[in-house]
Design a protein around this nucleic acid. Structure first.
Lengths: 299, 299
DNA sequence: CTCCGTGATAACCATTGGTTATGGACGTGC
DNA sequence: GCACGTCCATAACCAATGGTTATCACGGAG
């Protein structure tokens, strides 16, 4: 037996005025509309709220019993609306920054943050790491507003990006690997090695880190699938395969038992800051600008 | 920015299920209806309440901010409904008994009450005295459900009644009045006396207490208008006029300085219990039955 | 690759909520 | 008493709302 909030306002207004015509103009509706709505309300409630007769309009006892609750419902709803609006504003003033792996790279993130908050002191930033199965680092499902990603992105038309860094691809392997002793590895020597690969859902990025473009069409051997730095480290130590990674990410896996070596014959990897093409919100533009400016000074 | 309570229920249901289809069946509506209503709600609120994507349905932060308020509004409304229903029931179980002057007359009222409450122990009785300007003693404007009145009633078709007592009409006058010395007064001797009269609004009853039917068309002289026993007593003492009244009401005015005398040549007055012709509620019938039974035993 | 489950959309229909014009009951002032 | 003003109810009408069924688009699982 729910009713429209508006009907409660009508009820309270008439209860306060005890006068339909005056209540109607206070509510900016016509008097017949008010009469009709209150009759409907009384019908759905199953009992009259007002006694109307020659002597005027009075609350029935049932109406009097309902009145304080109606007021309270309206008050609660109004405060709820205020809370909602505040949350809305907070949401508008918060930028979610996604990343596959920590961008690190000499304080790039703090530099961007300080530029950004200088331009938008009211805005809040939230950083969060996203599983590698989503190569857009949350852009695709709205979890992020901007994201640090490795090119290429899937579905290029939906996103725009600015390249933040170009880094050579290294190979990581167990220190017991037969090639671990070399200073530099030629990619041709890795062609038959089992590789650790991103999940299938990573699409073109999976291929990029398998360097399929340097294999002349010969399919890679997949030793395991990996979706986080820790998984990668464990798989390397266990000898499940070798793995390409950007030079800047070497510290993530180069722990005890794992070595990284430069690879000859591979194009560099590109780290980019990306956003949704249709997202023109000022905070997004501002973050991108801050990133470009930072990139300029640090490049 | 009011919304329908139903929409809040929809919102809460989806927030709890995080699943439109399941929420829809819990609410006994089709899934498209639920989708549409929630979109409308989001549109009127100006921000989405849920994130829906491949991974499922989740509350937005704004939605999360609104949720507790929505729950509270619904809870308040539900308790308000309960209060309303209780008041409705109490109203149904309360009989308002109106009277122009106290019926008195040897415990008639307590006798009726005991019979009535024996038949309806759950019912409450409220007695109230009504100004003489309303000769229906509150029946007309709904202030009373049953009423002790003097016949005739105005607008006979609207009411039914049962005669409770027939009493001779006496005349009341100041003890200094020239006729006060007589044991009995003939109405012919009163024709030129100023009379105290009920208000104009009393209609035919005013004429009855002026005994216009015994005046052969000659208009009465009005000394003052009266609307309560106290006014009557004061007007009598002040010598503003004389006044007819039922024998049973003599004690109301026969105080120091006022005397009452039988009048020859007048028909008796009839005290009746009346109710609205269209009012068939069990409590009303029951009170009338109790009154008739009591009348039978005391008559 | 096809099927299933999910939410969104389309097309349609009855009900709701508003409008203006009008009616009927009552009080008021000449 | 009688024309008038006030007040609430009703009538006729119209746009928007809230529901239905049928269908689509998409992603996940077998």
């Amino acid at each position: 037996m729910d009713v429209h909030g508006r009907d409660l306002r009508y009820f309270v207004a008439v209860a306060e005025e005890l006068h339909f015509t005056r209540a109607a103009e206070r509510l900016f509706v016509s008097q017949p509309a008010l009469s009709k709505q209150l009759r409907m309300l009384e019908r759905t409630l199953g009992a009259p709220l007002f006694d109307r007769d020659r002597h005027g309009v009075r609350l029935t006892s049932a109406g009097a019993a309902l009145l304080p609750h109606a007021r309270r419902v309206l008050a609660d709803w109004d405060t709820g609306l205020v809370a909602f609006e505040e949350a809305k504003a907070a949401q508008r003033a918060t930028l979610a920054v996604g990343m596959s792996t920590s961008p690190g790279r000499g304080g790039m993130l703090p530099a961007i943050r300080s530029r950004f908050t200088a331009a938008h002191p009211e805005a809040a930033l939230t950083l969060h790491q996203v599983n590698w199965s989503d190569t857009t680092a949350g852009l695709g499902d709205g979890a992020s507003d901007v994201a640090f990603v490795w090119l290429p992105l899937p579905d290029g038309a939906r996103y725009r990006w600015t390249v933040m860094a170009e880094e050579p691809r290294l190979v990581a392997m167990a220190e017991s690997h037969r090639l671990a002793a070399r200073e530099t590895v030629d990619f041709a020597d890795l062609l038959d090695e089992p590789f650790l690969a991103l999940p299938e859902s990573a699409g073109p990025l999976r291929d990029h880190w398998l360097a399929t473009d340097a294999r002349d069409g010969r399919p890679p051997v997949i030793g395991a699938e990996i979706a986080s730095p820790d998984e990668t480290y464990e798989a390397l130590v266990d000898g499940l395969g070798v793995c390409l990674l950007a030079a800047g990410n070497a510290p993530l896996v180069a722990r005890a038992g794992v070595v990284t070596r430069p690879v000859a014959g591979l194009s560099p990897a590109q780290l980019a800051l990306a956003w949704r093409a249709d997202d023109t919100r000022p905070l997004v533009r501002a973050y991108v600008e801050a990133a470009r400016a930072t990139h300029g000074t640090t490049a």
